[in-house]
């Protein structure tokens, strides 16, 4: 009886911890999205972005779980679109964000790639997803130019983001994310 109560207590604590850390990461991702939107469009190519929000997604992917990373990203995109963007921005972001997160999850499962490499693929596939959505919506066939440019910018930004996130994953204590209460592993 007493034992059971203790277990429930722990489970509840884990649950609260999990909700809190997810919420924290979503909030962080939203702030980064906002920050990124403040960077003036000095890039010659529309849709080219630094993708700093991806730092949060990659961190969640490696520190928490695949569903967490996907959930945080989707939630962030929906919230950010309601706050600053619009319906069309949401479609582009969702198709890019979901595709890149999916690819990163798959690549992580293969286990033979470093965080940076996974992030590079994520950057490229984010742009592929966005261009695909643009191709459907705008119905333009000049899309291959756009894609080829964004392909390489995605690789470059993916590398930068990957280096940053792998440092974060290495340095942040597991206890911040771990669903086990306390205790670093």
């Amino acid at each position: 009886m007493k034992d059971n109560k203790g277990k429930n207590n722990i489970r509840q604590k884990q649950y609260i911890r999990s909700v809190t850390s997810h919420g924290m990461l979503v909030a962080m991702a939203i702030v980064l999205s906002w920050l990124e939107a403040q960077i003036p469009a000095f890039f010659a190519v529309p849709g080219m972005k630094l993708g700093i929000t991806n730092i949060v997604v990659v961190t969640a992917l490696y520190k928490m779980s695949s569903p967490s990373a996907m959930g945080i990203n989707i939630l962030r995109i929906i919230l950010v679109s309601f706050m600053f963007g619009g319906p069309s921005a949401m479609i582009y972001s969702l198709s890019g964000g979901m595709l890149s997160t999916l690819i990163m999850i798959l690549l992580k499962k293969i286990r033979h790639f470093s965080i940076t490499a996974v992030s590079i693929a994520g950057g490229v596939f984010h742009n592929i997803g966005q261009v695909a959505a643009a191709a459907v919506i705008l119905n333009t066939d000049g899309i291959f130019w756009y894609l080829s440019v964004l392909w390489f910018t995605g690789m470059v930004t993916g590398t930068l983001i990957g280096i940053l996130s792998s440092q974060l994953v290495k340095r942040l204590p597991d206890s911040l994310f771990s669903l086990r209460s306390g205790g670093t592993k």
């Binding site: 490499a117 291959f144 894609l147 080829s148 392909w151």
Partner: peptide, 22 residues
Amino acid sequence: PRYDFILILILAVAGLGILAFA
């Protein structure tokens, strides 16, 4: 074993392919 190199190579080659296609 890390296969980063292979992944990046594939991505780069595919990107060049798209560029060539364009």
